[in-house]
Design a protein around this nucleic acid. Structure first.
Lengths: 174, 174
DNA sequence: AACACTGATTGTATTTTGAAAGCAGTTGCA
DNA sequence: TGCAACTGCTTTCAAAATACAATCAGTGTT
């Protein structure tokens, strides 16, 4: 255990955990992208390199944000799961997304999920967290109907399709 | 302007702004500590060094999270102010504090503020943000009564006094 | 005149980060 | 039985970030 902290302030300690450019993106991809394997996480929007990913996964395991187990279908595959500690970040993700959407140069397709999370509010976040608990902690009683992740993903793809169609039209007109 | 971003995802862009160990602590000290001057910010709990502080202040100014003006009382003093963009981080600070308090080894005295922010909920956050707007943006209509920051600070000092008394008693008993 | 304080800057050592390439074992397919 | 593709990860090495101490020129105080 490394308990040589700069201070015992909760905000400082939180920053010591994910106050870097990558840790929270890994959690994001697991939460919103449903990624569970090393190679899946390697294909992030931002292009994380494998040594950094390996290092962050190791740290997140040590901290207790993730757990790791073997994939029965493949002797070399590992399955990473979120712990309650990581699932509890969903509201922070939602706030971060909302803040970024308001003040930073986001793209429409990559911020549609943030918009829906913001509009859905705490009720949606709780539902999403329940789904994640069912998926990652093996808890029973997963909410019925289309999952929050699927709904967000569908909205993302809809924007992408619309944009592709718009580009097509613009191309034909030129 | 440096708009060579890794991706236009709102969470990623947010991390590009304060995805480091210091930026958010500076904002924290300005919000909760009421610090406005370089030397005040230099005396952080965590001991930031002056070159790092200067660098982060510069970056935060460029991004638009802070503004800087001369202090009329001293020709060499500069006063840093939060912008709306930074004040809008109050809810994120509250969530971060709550999360850290739940999952990380915080101390009682440094987490009492986070506890009160959590208990106060969005209504308290809004009041705090209004106070910060009055203080930093020069808006009128500052809420009356003891300020949120003073209330938090008083609670912190109360814990400190109680702990000092406890140490005294323990010392006398040994 | 002496001295502490102002927001920084400079110089240097150490640590962290990160891209590219490589690795040993596994799997699926021909 | 090859063999290519895939598995999680490690190695290498350069570059960037950070820490730490000393320093600076102007300002205010005594």
């Amino acid at each position: 255990m490394t308990d040589d902290h700069r201070s015992a302030c909760p905000i400082n300690l939180s920053l010591e955990v994910f106050g870097d450019k990558w840790s929270l993106l890994i959690i994001r991809d697991m939460i919103f992208g449903g990624k569970r394997h090393f190679r899946e996480l390697l294909r992030s929007q931002e292009g994380i390199s494998s040594n950094i990913l390996a290092d962050r996964l190791k740290t997140l395991l040590e901290i207790g944000m993730l757990t790791k187990r073997d994939d029965p279908s493949h002797k070399q595959k590992a399955i990473y799961s979120l712990t309650e500690m990581a699932i509890a970040l969903v509201p922070i993700m939602a706030h971060l997304g909302a803040w970024g959407r308001r003040y930073l140069p986001v793209s429409e397709e990559l911020s549609i999920r943030a918009q829906l999370m913001e509009e859905g509010g705490p009720a949606l976040w709780e539902r999403f967290m329940d789904e994640l608990r069912a998926e990652h902690l093996g808890e029973t009683g997963a909410p019925s109907g289309p999952s929050v992740r699927q709904t967000l993903q569908a909205a993302y793809e809809e924007v992408m399709n619309r944009k592709a169609k718009e580009r097509e039209l613009a191309g034909a007109g030129s």
